[in-house]
Amino acid sequence: MSRRKPYLVGHQEFAALYRVDSKMVAQWLAPSRSVLDPSTALVVSGVRYWPLGFAARFGTTAARFRQVDLDVKARIVEEQGAGWEPDLGDELPPIVGQQEIIAMFHLPAQGNLATTIATGRFPQHDWVLSGSMLWLLETVLDAVPELRQSGRSVPWDADGEVVAALRGGTYDGPGSRVLTRGRHATKGL
């Protein structure tokens, strides 16, 4: 089933929009700099992603004006296919990564999912952002009948409570938080 999906960016794509190194986005997020508010991002599998509309507008709202590279923006839109440009995270449909999928199906190990993906039995990802695969929740749920047919040792029964939490924006399981690294890690405790 083909769905129009929202255009998203990860750290690498966000950095490309402003022609800076991807480490710069992490610096903008640092509490000591407070250039980019972490709450503007959607967290999927422990990684931040932003709606393209917000990311493209960010340069005009920062204390120091930054010009977005419109060619990079056009390339991002082209790579992601038919979609729409959200500005706020609450406009986004439920999006999942591998950690949320493992929790949703109570998979015994990450290897179960990795093998299913590698053998082509899992639905095609909706995005690859900053090197990570992401899916619309509905893409994964629509594939459950096929997953059950091809599953040998995994029943592929989705946990209704996890699905409801993902749909309602209240999911707080594995992957729902960014694990802070570096010198700011101790400040987050």
Rank of each mutant, 00 (worst) to 15 (best):
R3Y: 12
R4T: 06
Q12G: 13
E13Q: 11
F14G: 09
A16D: 06
L17V: 01
L17W: 02
L17M: 02
K23R: 14
K23Q: 14
M24E: 15
V25F: 01
V25H: 07
Q27P: 04
W28N: 12
L29F: 11
D37Q: 08
P38L: 06
T40W: 03
V43R: 06
S45W: 02
Y49D: 09
L52Y: 04
G53E: 04
A55P: 07
A55L: 06
G59C: 02
G59N: 03
T60C: 03
A62P: 00
A62K: 14
F65W: 13
V68W: 00
V72G: 06
K73R: 15
R75C: 02
E79N: 13
E79Y: 12
Q80S: 06
G81K: 03
A82N: 11
W84E: 05
P86T: 00
L88Y: 03
L88R: 13
G89Q: 10
L92D: 05
L92M: 05
P93T: 01
G97E: 00
Q98E: 11
Q99I: 09
Q99P: 00
Q99M: 05
A103T: 04
H106M: 05
H106E: 04
G111N: 15
G111T: 15
N112T: 14
L113M: 04
T115S: 12
T116P: 03
T119R: 10
F122T: 04
Q124Y: 11
H125T: 09
D126F: 08
S130V: 06
M133N: 12
M133D: 06
M133E: 11
L134H: 05
L136S: 11
L137H: 01
T139Q: 08
T139L: 03
V140R: 01
A143C: 00
E146A: 09
L147G: 09
R152Q: 12
V154P: 05
D157N: 12
D157P: 09
G160L: 15
E161R: 03
V162M: 01
V163T: 07
V163F: 08
V163G: 05
A164W: 06
A165I: 01
L166Y: 01
R167P: 07
G168D: 10
D172E: 14
G173R: 03
P174R: 09
R177I: 12
V178Q: 09
L179D: 05
T180N: 14
T186H: 13
T186Y: 13
K187Q: 13
L189W: 15
L189R: 15
